[in-house]
């Protein structure tokens, strides 16, 4: 487990969830253009894949993969809980991105 991995996975899931229509407005209070959506999705996926890398530096590949799967679970769980019960916290986290997108 590593903090960097968690942060990457968290960002990844967060960006993906900004883009899945139903919840976008909970986090970023604006309509995104298609190009912006595509970019965010791409960055989200890249961040998710990247979160495997810190795992690989700690353990051998088989153990790293399991740690990664568990890390993804934890990150996704955090995002969903925040999104459902404390979307404002996610909005705060997304603020820098909102400025840049506007």
């Amino acid at each position: 487990m590593s903090l960097l991995g968690f942060v990457l996975a968290f960002i990844g899931f967060n960006l993906l969830c900004v883009n899945t229509g139903r919840n976008a407005n909970k986090i970023v209070d604006m309509t995104l253009t298609l190009a912006q959506q595509r970019l965010l999705t791409l960055v989200g996926w890249v961040a998710l894949v990247m979160s495997l890398w810190p795992m690989l530096t700690i353990d051998s590949i088989s153990i790293a993969l399991i740690n990664w799967a568990m890390l993804l679970t934890l990150a996704a769980c955090t995002v969903i809980l925040l999104l459902t019960y404390r979307p404002k916290l996610l909005a705060v986290l997304a603020k820098p991105v909102t400025h840049w997108l506007a």
């Binding site: 969830c17 899945t20 139903r22 919840n23 969903i80």
Partner: peptide
């Protein structure tokens, strides 16, 4: 749409 459903717990 696995992510769509996934991120929308109501």
């Amino acid at each position: 749409n696995i992510f769509k459903d996934f991120f929308s717990f109501r």
